[in-house]
């Protein structure tokens, strides 16, 4: 194989790696949003939930002794993210379900609170351990290795020289994402709980009339979205780098997941496909310049980044009149309403 061919293959592998991991993030967070919206609560705070979930996982990695076994590490990190995401999403639940607050305000507040809270906390931890380090960065280079399986395929390159490798990083979060997808599908469509949950997002008064506890169902939907969002958050910050600056938030992945959810028309299987497409676009903006053909087109990274939103807007423009969105989403449950 020539050196050029190898370069191209390596770029493809890198693109595949990024696409898969970004798609996993988007899919998990979008599924979270899907649960919440099917129960009748719009969750605009996914971005903030991701940040807090990421914080939970990152804190576990910071405080767990380095000699902890790989499996324990992986499980505890995921548990940390899930617990943080779950608890944080309860803020949305209390406000929007029990106090009938405006879900858009609360969601927006959660996004800002997530970044501000994580920044304040991480900076406090960093300055406490070293007064000269007032940054909002948590490093997790070593623990991150437990999540990765690196494949190195030796290739002989024409013209000799040292032996060279094609490398590909497999991330265990891909498996987690697929499990979470299957779980979402089964729970929503094959269990009594899921069908009841969806009824509460379509017509809560009708659901209540057959004895379903609407508030409980909505709480479940919101908390499940916290679990999915938290997992998505930790998966995102560990996708490509070995440290994270919490001041930066999660660069719009929570909002991108909303786009995935809408493009996927609130259905798990379609959400998975939408996540693949949008994940590919996001990956192209990161590593697309590595391809000679794409480089010749000279498309700025921003174009790839905005494509998902443009696509989503176009889809919305054509489908909103007969939208698949849960009918009662965003409306606080009022027993007396018909």
């Amino acid at each position: 194989m020539s050196a050029d061919t190898m370069q191209v293959i390596q770029q493809f592998l890198l693109l595949l790696q990024y696409t898969l991991i970004f798609s996993s993030v988007l899919m998990m967070v979008a599924l979270g949003g899907c649960f919440s919206e099917h129960s009748g609560v719009i969750n605009l705070g996914l971005e903030g939930i991701m940040v807090i979930g990421a914080l939970g996982g990152a804190l576990v990695m910071r405080y767990l002794p380095a000699d902890a076994s790989g499996l324990v590490m992986v499980l505890l990190v995921m548990l940390g993210a899930v617990v943080f995401g779950l608890v944080y999403s309860a803020l949305l639940g209390v406000a929007s379900i029990n106090f009938k607050a405006d879900q858009t305000i609360v969601g927006t507040a959660l996004n800002m609170l997530g970044v501000a809270g994580a920044t304040v906390l991480v900076k406090a931890i960093n300055t406490a351990s070293n007064p000269d380090n007032p940054s909002s960065i948590i490093e997790y280079g070593l623990p991150r290795q437990n999540f990765l399986v690196t494949f190195k395929i030796p290739v002989s390159v024409e013209g000799g020289g040292a032996e060279r490798f094609l490398s590909f990083e497999f991330n265990w979060f891909l498996v987690v994402a697929i499990v979470m997808l299957v779980a979402a599908y089964i729970v929503l469509y094959k269990t009594r709980f899921g069908l009841r949950l969806m009824a509460c997002g379509e017509h809560p008064q009708a659901a209540a009339s057959v004895g379903i506890n609407v508030l409980k169902m909505r709480w479940s939907g919101v908390l499940i979205s916290g679990v999915y969002g938290g997992l998505g958050g930790i998966c995102y910050i560990m996708a490509a780098v070995s440290q994270w600056e919490f001041e930066r938030g999660v660069a719009g992945f929570g909002f991108l997941s909303l786009a995935v959810m809408i493009f996927g028309q609130w259905k798990p299987s379609r959400i998975a496909l939408a996540a693949l497409l949008f994940g590919l676009l996001r990956a192209l903006s990161n590593v697309g310049t590595g391809f000679a053909a794409l480089q010749a087109l000279n498309i700025p990274g921003g174009v790839y980044n905005m494509m998902p939103y443009v696509i989503c807007l176009v889809v919305l423009a054509f489908t909103s009149k007969k939208s698949r969105a849960p009918k009662a989403e965003g409306i606080p449950y009022d027993k007396g309403m018909r």
Binding site: I105, A109, M112, A116, V120, K123
Partner: peptide
């Protein structure tokens, strides 16, 4: 951190 004021504003929005 100086972001404590961002935290306070976001609590107020909430």
């Amino acid at each position: 951190a100086s972001q404590i004021s961002d935290l306070i504003s976001s609590i107020i929005i909430y």
